[in-house]
Design a protein around this nucleic acid. Structure first.
Length: 252
DNA sequence: CTAGCATTTCCTGCTT
DNA sequence: GAAGCAGGAAATGCTA
């Protein structure tokens, strides 16, 4: 759990989880998470400057930067640790290496999801894309209180099973041979470690009794909705359908 | 509180 | 026989 570790010590996978969680909380579509640009561990993440975040995450940069700073200085729930720095350094967006200064900027809250980093929205399938982020207010509140209970939203919005699968596929570095593309351009993929994926999914849903058997039932329901297309004859093989978005290389 | 969605859980039957 | 696949039916958890 990345929440229990200082960002400095996160593994690449935890960085990934943090990215996902942060997007979830701000109700931003997970498909816009610039995973490719965050193929780094916590140590490297903490060395990123504000500019780095903007460059690597576009409009989501400020939000991510702020979130990370919060976690770095306000602690992560972990052993009672207050700000590691005395007197809050006043805002300054300057390159902070490894640790140190960070700002309190409010301007960083302005990020209203919808189309992060210039992603044109060629579709408007499912959910979200409404609520102009009330998140900012929440955050400010927590700010005033000077503390933050790390993020535990009860509802993982925007993260459906197929998106979860897609995200694993899109991040080979964090995908220890769990699922593999069979035909990248056609959207055909195969589960290599079906039970492991089920466990991961269960972990995400806080359901320790998840199994591939049950996960696959949910996958089969996607056929009717055309989020997945049937691939018969081949075990553990699925294919994204016309209603699945964000898996193609070009629309990433 | 009610609907509806997206699974989750369980199950029977069939296939590989 | 084990592991998957197909779907139906019902139960759940959550959000609008």
């Amino acid at each position: 759990m990345w929440q229990e570790t200082h960002p400095q010590f996160w593994t690449k996978f935890q960085v990934w989880e943090w990215l996902q969680q942060t997007f979830d909380i701000h109700q931003m579509d997970a498909m816009y998470i610039p995973f490719q640009n965050f193929d780094i561990d916590g140590g490297q993440l903490c060395m990123m400057t504000f500019q780095d975040f903007n460059r690597m995450a576009g409009h989501a940069g400020p939000l991510l930067y702020h979130s990370l700073m919060e976690l770095m200085w306000n602690g992560t729930g972990h052993s009672g640790n207050g700000p590691l720095v005395s007197g809050n350094n006043k805002t300054q967006i300057h390159e902070l290496p490894g640790q140190l200064s960070f700002k309190e900027e409010n301007c960083f809250y302005d990020c209203t999801d919808t189309e992060l980093f210039n992603c044109k929205e060629p579709f408007q399938t499912t959910e979200d894309h409404n609520s102009p982020t009330p998140a900012s207010q929440e955050e400010k509140k927590q700010h005033i209180r000077g503390q933050r209970t790390p993020i535990k939203k009860h509802s993982p919005r925007g993260t459906h099973l197929w998106e979860f699968i897609r995200d694993i596929l899109l991040n080979p570095d964090r995908n220890p041979g769990l699922i593999k593309w069979e035909d990248r351009t056609e959207g055909v993929f195969r589960f290599l470690k079906s039970e492991a994926v089920a466990q991961l999914w269960g972990k995400k849903k806080n359901n320790s009794s998840m199994t591939y058997e049950k996960l696959s039932r949910a996958m089969r329901y996607y056929y009717k909705r055309e989020i997945l297309e049937r691939v018969d004859g081949r075990r553990l093989v699925y294919k994204f359908g016309r209603n699945a978005r964000g898996w193609r290389e070009c629309e990433k």
